[in-house]
Amino acid sequence: MLSRRIIPCFDVDRGRVVKGVSFVELRDAGDPVELAKAYDDAGADELVFLDITASSDDRATVYDMVAATADQVFIPFTIGGGIRSVSDMKIMLELGAEKVSINTSAIQTPDLINEGAYRFGSQCIVVAIDARRDPSQPGRWEVYTHGGRNPTGLDAVEWAKEAVARGAGELLVTSMDTDGHQRGYDTPLLRAISDAVTVPVIASGGAGGPEHMLAALTEGRADAVLAASIFHFGTYSIREVKDYLAKHGVPVRIEESV
């Protein structure tokens, strides 16, 4: 049976993971490769690296990180942040990322989705959508860019449909309302988008515990849940989350030998 996926996410600045990780003793808690290996051992199904490096002069640090991770880590990982062209995508995929995630650049240049899907296949093109509830229209969410700072006027569900029609193979849906609060994902947003598209949806923003992940995967109909803090700070282990989900009938990958 196809498992629902549990995906830890890291912010990376100049090739180093920022916002410390303390769930396991590491010689170097900022080393993406060590972290990725630890999460592979801990049962993570996939990893997402979000590159927040401000200066394009430091791009090479990210390339090195992707290559080093791919050399040592044998689960799929996605790289997002700073990918603005088909050639940016090509570099990341050739260095060993399984998928690339595009957000602001997809809104500025929607054809980037089509071109990426045509060149590399939909399965490696993830469109990330940052959405915020529209206070004037319940049940409507607006898409934001630049890390949630700039409103676009786009309806999140409509943009999701367009992104998939253009070739997105997966959507990474972050609620700017719930992100960082650890009180649960925006389940109605996930449900609205999951029901509108035929590709997998990754829930993001607001995970505080396994019950939130269960809600995202059941009521929200997401295919995968992404989280950062609760794993990095050791609040819950991936195994604890998976055991909880399995107990509630959600198919997850649990390897007894790991």
């Binding site: 196809l2 498992s3 629902r4 199904d45 997966e170 295919d223 390897e255 030998s257």
Partner: peptide, 28 residues
Amino acid sequence: RKVPHMGWNTVEWVREHPVIEGIPSGSA
């Protein structure tokens, strides 16, 4: 059921073979 089939799924062995030695049936 979405297409593509993407993610971790289980494989059940229906016979033995040297290339699957040590990998339990039902592994993802």
